[in-house]
Design a binder for these strands. Structure first.
Lengths: 330, 330
DNA sequence: TTGTAGGCGTTATCAA
DNA sequence: TTGATAACGCCTACAA
């Protein structure tokens, strides 16, 4: 059976195709009753507009390309949720480009996606604008940075300095020496993020402002094995009670394991503050910083959408702040 | 500046649009000279066909949806490489749907992508056909399973039983007691894979055939921390020399760490066989099983492409075998 | 072997 | 506020 077209809907509703199209696109100038009739016809026929026809008639692709790092963590799932939510409301499709390494980026640049399949670009975490211009990629599409910050483009970013500061301000109220574990992001210079330096800057500032100092700092790469080695070293060299800021929940979780394995009690012998509020954090009672990631995605998308509907003007930045969630671990 | 269209190319080349279209689509009936002229015009104008116009004219989407689990591992990067390679040759676009959880699957099912944006479906690792039919999703698109096996659909799969057997056949030639580490895939019943049971079946069979037996079996979840705990337990309870089959390189890598941390020598005190041949495996001298993943993706794509060009007939299965790569660890 | 014309399902424009 | 109709860029007959 043939898919119903806009013609079928128009016939069924007893109106012209123009009217149907207007209803579809929320073009205000449709009388209430007519709109209802059309909507009913659409429902009756189970009509879905053909996006390809729309694209060619409209001269736009109604598609947004989202470039993001490997989807390993909860973070990007949530980010994508926010982005897709906003774009779907506006009847835009989302094309996901998982950027695993340079070669996949190359492929993306070569594909016709950029030329035809994207009215706009979302770049998450990594700011690749420089690369694109260097390559003389004719990407005059509006672009928004999400989870990254830059002066010269629209962006929605998490204020990690403030996040670090919040952790610090809370940490100085807790007993014992202060320790911190940072993440070393050992990446290609192209794929680089300053998230953890920023968290550190905020944390150190707050600690200093509180008249305290950090007894020992550790650095771990972003995997559980390295995290466990660091946790071991930290606990070996600590006196209890003490307080630890683990700048990512991954690290905090491993630390919690190690603490418990030694018969110590989180929130009593070792006060642990994490960062991220991963799904398991509540269950484990981890005090941590919750980031409004979906919101950041949603707002970032809105920034792009306004550009797409013609907004001019200087780059805008939307700043988001994490929120301290106090549980039993600290 | 307006993008050049097929009309522009035709004018420039002094031919009709039909001819240009034929050249674009390799419709044999074009004289050599004419083809050259057209090709030159295309190059001169830097013309790229508008895929959306093509889709509406052709009544097809020229897009394949690829449903795959989270892109965490090298495995899926390589799989995607193979798939994209094949589809690009055939001028198909690939839409990636990272299936992180049920809710994202739901969203995918609801989007118009299925209805309009996919001439075919690739499902990697997870066989979701049942779910789709249950949901009465009108997915009459040809579907191919990749890295999964089923009687009732085309599929390209890795023969993990044989892989396990290869590991077993080699392991029985090595000194000391035999140990094995399996992966526990604790997943939603929807997202389920039998990969590791299969590797185990093959391994056990070969060991038995070799008149040997496995001294101890361990199970780890798929993360480095769990892997390390298992490695520790295993080494604590082993006599040296011994031989260990770690059914995923992730596990093998952690085991190697632990072996070396204890001052033992891989390939002398502890013989380690992995599975996957991750990028780092060569550098660490890990003996492991290399899987022709790109090939599997490529062939799977071909299966789908033949269906798309009208092939009828019973489901076809393409089987792929891993290959033992002997290095210094065993 | 090639050119011409009609059609794909929308959106946009113009009258009415 | 609406309906008719011309684009949009391509593919595919069909005719030459």
């Amino acid at each position: 059976m043939r898919k119903p077209t806009i013609q079928d809907v128009a016939r069924q509703a007893g109106v012209g195709v123009g009217t149907v199209s207007r209803v579809l696109n929320n073009h205000a100038a449709v009388k209430g009753v007519t709109r209802e009739t059309v909507l009913k016809a659409i429902a009756d026929l189970d009509y879905t507009p053909n996006p390809h026809a729309r694209r060619i008639a409209g001269g736009k692709s109604y598609t947004i390309s989202v470039l993001l790092p490997v989807l390993t963590t909860e973070f990007y799932v949530r980010l994508l949720d926010g982005l897709e939510h906003a774009f779907q409301e506006a009847r835009y499709d989302v094309a996901i480009f998982p950027l695993l390494d340079r070669s996949r980026l190359e492929r993306y640049l070569r594909s016709h996606t950029l030329a035809y399949q994207a009215d706009g670009l979302v770049m998450a975490t990594y700011n690749l604008t420089q690369l694109l211009t260097e390559r003389q990629v004719r990407t005059q599409q509006p672009t928004v940075l999400v989870d990254a910050h830059a002066e010269d483009s629209d962006c929605a970013y998490m204020d990690n300095v403030t996040g670090g500061r919040m952790a610090g301000e809370y940490a100085v109220t807790l007993p014992g020496n202060l320790h911190a574990i940072w993440v070393e992001t050992e990446l290609d210079q192209l794929f680089t993020t300053r998230v953890f330096e920023e968290r550190r800057a905020g944390f150190m500032e707050a600690v200093q402002a509180g008249g305290r100092q950090v007894k020992a700092e550790y650095t771990s790469s972003f995997d559980t094995l390295a995290a466990r080695n660091v946790a071991t070293a930290l606990l070996d060299g600590a006196e209890f009670p003490c307080t630890v800021f683990a700048s990512a929940d991954l690290l905090a979780g491993v630390l919690l394991d190690e603490v418990q394995a030694r018969g110590l009690t989180p929130g009593k012998d070792v006060y642990v503050i994490g960062f991220d509020d991963q799904p398991w954090a509540a269950a484990r009672g981890l005090t941590t910083l919750h980031q409004p990631v979906e919101q950041m995605g949603y707002e970032g998308a809105q920034l792009l959408l306004t550009r797409l509907s013609g907004h001019r003007g200087p780059p805008r930045a939307r700043r988001f702040e994490p929120r301290l969630v106090v549980r039993t671990s600290a």
